[in-house]
Amino acid sequence: MNRNELIARIVARHPDILDRDNCRRCIDRIQARIVEALQNGDRVEIRGFGSFSVRHYPESSFRNPQNQKKVTVPAHPVLHFKPGKVLIEEINAGSPANRSSG
């Protein structure tokens, strides 16, 4: 599924609330807010789905065994996504769990 298909499915669920253009803008906002939060160093926690957080890798250096040159990798942030417990259980089961909320 790609972004356009996702938009179509959301619009199909809520024809009374939004159309395709509106939905596209909404998804843009969702993505922008997620990036903003992560850039601020905040976590993003979506219950039942998963959480996004930024991990910090310290500077490290290696020596290339072929030419003995030292390579330094600077400290850098990396995004970490941890799937939610329920979601990963559902994926393993191959079917949605019985939950009251639809």
Binding site: M1, L6, R9, I10, R13, H14, I17, L18, C23, C26, I27, I30, I46, G48, F49, L87, E90, P96
Partner: peptide, 13 residues
């Protein structure tokens, strides 16, 4: 509703 559907549709997929 839209936020729910966004993550729910990804989840179902």
């Amino acid at each position: 509703k839209v936020v729910h559907s966004f993550f729910d549709e990804i989840r179902k997929s």
